[in-house]
Design a binder for these strands. Structure first.
Lengths: 188, 188
DNA sequence: GCTTGAAATGTTAGTCACTAACAATCGTGC
DNA sequence: GCACGATTGTTAGTGACTAACATTTCAAGC
């Protein structure tokens, strides 16, 4: 349970960072600049965000995803289980689909090092999916292949959403991405 | 055309780095240690390798891959074109399948920051594939989804190869990875 | 053998992300 | 007003990387 003061400081840092990133680019702005703009010491920045990229990339690991994968029929091939699981976990609800989220995604899509941070953050989700499938007797490599392919497609949709027209919903792009991985002729 | 002296120095740095990485781990060994062990200045290290991770992660971009994708029948869905293209480019030839390559892959598989470097390196290949498909009239997002999914599966196979039994060939694992993305019931 | 000239390396000094240890301050409960 | 914990500041340092300039190596020509 974070203190109100903590939340205020964190919000100030986040605002200052987003502003500077959009004005001069991610790699061109230093943590010192962000701290200055937020009226804070660089040290305080790192107390609220473990790394510079954590301002934009929050680890999206959600145990619900692994659960949703595990809930799919066990007799399906691994890829199809992961695909349907992701679809049921992400294809519907769209958590924080506000303008700020979109600004962040757009920034991430522009920087190679930020995209790398996203792929690191996704590894936790992949790992959780793999463990779930392995527990059901699926070969570990097959599980890793299925999970990484589906998550890569989902990430591609997420990054595209950052610069997509405003009326296009993230859930729509995710469904479109996963539809491409469907067995030939499938309609769902 | 690199000078013989350049090649010798580069090889010394590479040997020293591999040795230290395997003995004390990647993140625990500094560039200074590598330079010392190679009888060289840290500055010289960076003249031969742009970054610390470049010792292990060489950008595998090969224009042949994009060509192979473009050579597949244009009436196939994007995912299938990319899949068959990768299969024809990687499923057969196995360039440098020596013990050193395997040691490097095994090291990469252990470090999150190195895996991130791999994913950055793969982006060039993905970009090339996407451009090829877009030139054929494929939607850019569909192309990105297909390319990233196939490359993620291939990368999963590559990382698994690093710790696989010695008699398992990389080409075999790649074929297995891409087979999982095949339309239901396909045999090739 | 000696010189010349370019390629390769060394030197120095710096920036930036990030960390550890300890001191100062803020704010809430009493 | 006072104590106490949570938050922030200070200082000093490490490690990856860069830029500018000086120095060394080494092969080719005389």
């Amino acid at each position: 349970m974070p203190t109100p003061r903590t939340l205020r400081t964190r919000a100030r840092i986040l605002d200052a960072a987003l502003d500077l990133f959009e004005r001069q680019g991610y790699s061109a702005t230093t943590v010192n600049q962000i701290a200055d703009a937020a009226g804070v010491t660089p040290m305080t920045f790192f107390r609220h965000f473990p790394t510079k990229d954590a301002v934009l990339v929050t680890d999206p690991y959600d145990p619900l995803i692994a659960d949703a994968v595990g809930a799919q029929p066990a007799d399906l091939p691994p890829l199809e289980r992961v695909r349907l699981g992701l679809l049921s976990a992400l294809g519907d609800i769209t958590p924080t689909e506000d303008a700020t989220a979109r600004r962040r995604v757009a920034l991430v899509a522009q920087s190679p090092s930020l995209r790398a941070a996203v792929s690191v953050g996704t590894e936790a989700t992949q790992e959780a999916i793999v463990e779930r499938l392995v527990a059901d007797g699926v070969d570990r490599l097959d599980a890793a292949i299925a999970a990484s392919a589906c998550l890569a497609a989902t990430t591609a949709a997420l990054l595209a959403w950052g610069s997509a027209p405003g009326d296009i919903t993230l859930a729509h792009l995710v469904r479109r991405a996963l539809a491409q991985l469907a067995p030939a002729g499938a309609t769902s």
